[in-house]
């Protein structure tokens, strides 16, 4: 049958997808650690946070976060105390922070489960958060992103909480 190779290729993708599903995000974070410093030993602070200190005194923090997002049209707010429903969409991102000041050095969206509004995963959009410590003037986050305002707000709120947490922590040391 003429379509046999096509069907075989589709089945192969299904099979490989199941093989790769486990620890997708953790493997992405490990690759990121190697990209930042191959020599430094990374200490696991908890299951989603890693820290390293290099010989020259530089310190790095890598954090893996998941944010519940939402669509306009009646879904629950991401910060709602009500438990997210089964269909709640989300995004998973990694943040590379300065281990001393807590400032953002780089952001990467590792998974974006929605089918639209994905401009917020673009490098040009994520770059605006570089060096952000959550204390400066509000970032014009929604500019250039359409159809995903609630997702953007949920992401920025989570990011702000993250950098403030680490900013306070480092200044208390």
């Amino acid at each position: 049958m003429k379509g046999t190779p096509i069907i075989a290729a589709l089945l192969a993708v299904v099979f490989l997808s199941f093989q790769w599903t486990e620890s997708y995000h953790l493997r992405a974070m490990r690759r990121w650690q190697s990209a930042i410093s191959k020599e430094a030993a990374w200490e696991e602070v908890d299951s989603t946070t890693w820290r390293c200190r290099q010989e020259d005194g530089e310190a790095h923090l890598l954090v893996l976060r998941r944010v519940n997002t939402c669509t306009f049209g009646g879904c629950i707010r991401p910060d709602s105390p009500v438990k997210a429903s089964a269909g709640q969409e989300y995004l998973v991102y990694g943040a590379h922070l300065d281990g001393i000041t807590g400032a953002i050095l780089e952001l990467r969206v590792l998974e974006y489960a929605s089918t639209y509004g994905y401009q917020m995963t673009a490098k040009w959009w994520l770059k605006q958060f570089n060096q952000w410590t959550g204390t400066e003037a509000e970032i014009q986050a929604v500019d250039g992103i359409t159809g995903a305002t609630v997702s953007v707000n949920a992401f920025v709120d989570d990011l702000k909480a993250l950098v403030l947490e680490h900013h306070d922590h480092s200044s208390n040391q």
Partner: peptide
Amino acid sequence: TATLLQAQFQPNTANQLLQASGTLSIR
């Protein structure tokens, strides 16, 4: 303003349904 940017990049309805939380959605 939001309306009109939406007119250019508006997601289609099927994509909205796939993102909607909860169980049953009607559009």
